[in-house]
Amino acid sequence: MRLMNHFPGRPGAVALAMLPFVLVLAAYAIGSDIRLTANPADKLLPAPGTIWDTAIRLFTEPDRRSQEILLWNDTFASLARLLGGVAISALIAMIIGMAIGILPYARSGLSGFVAVLSMVPPLALLPILFIVFGLGEVSKVVLIVIGITPFMTRDLSQRVLDIPREQFVKAQTLGASTWVVALNVVLPQLLPRLISNVRLSLGSAWLFLIAAEAVASNVGLGYRIFLVRRYLAMDVILTYVIWITLLAFVVDWLLKTISRKAFPWLEAGL
């Protein structure tokens, strides 16, 4: 039998899914052990136990000076920026994407502009944003918005164009105005696309957030990582990296679940 026709069983599939994680962890543990035996003061690859202890400390013990738990402060600050930026982008992308998809005039006027705009490297604009919007929250949110909106808009307008022409004609024969078509035909079918679109964009959004926080901030997950880098505090950095990964995973999972619950018609055919 061909290799492409071999399928793993249920337990086999679970074990295979775990395998890469186990391998990476094991490789890290071995590497860390080798370095620590050679030099117990090595800071580059702290032992998994050390990372665990650091994580407990970071999550539970308040900072000595401010009496606040910094990790939670960082988390809330970063999530607020991230979700704010993504929400604004989604709204803008939705409105412009629908306009481009539905209205030929908007398509002629905007689609080329959006395509060019999506080629601008957002990180190159970061200095401009800091100059224009200052070093506060606005510039970080704007970086996320500038970074992901053009891509989201292009994708969503394409999704509108993917809706069969028949549906637009049918809606018109039922007396629907342009507005009713947008509201009752396009919007409901675009929302699940928007969610999968947001899921795809979150990766870039995290990238822009951490970059902006690394350059200028006083709180935030990215800021903290780049701050403790000066002390070579690998245990703190790794804790934050794992924490960010976990947050990203949970947000993604939540969006996936919402999409499945909210749009039962998507799966009706399966």
Partner: peptide, 15 residues
Amino acid sequence: PERGVVFQRYSVFPH
């Protein structure tokens, strides 16, 4: 609305 239409496919709204 004077003209009703049925296409080969995609004439109903999936959502």
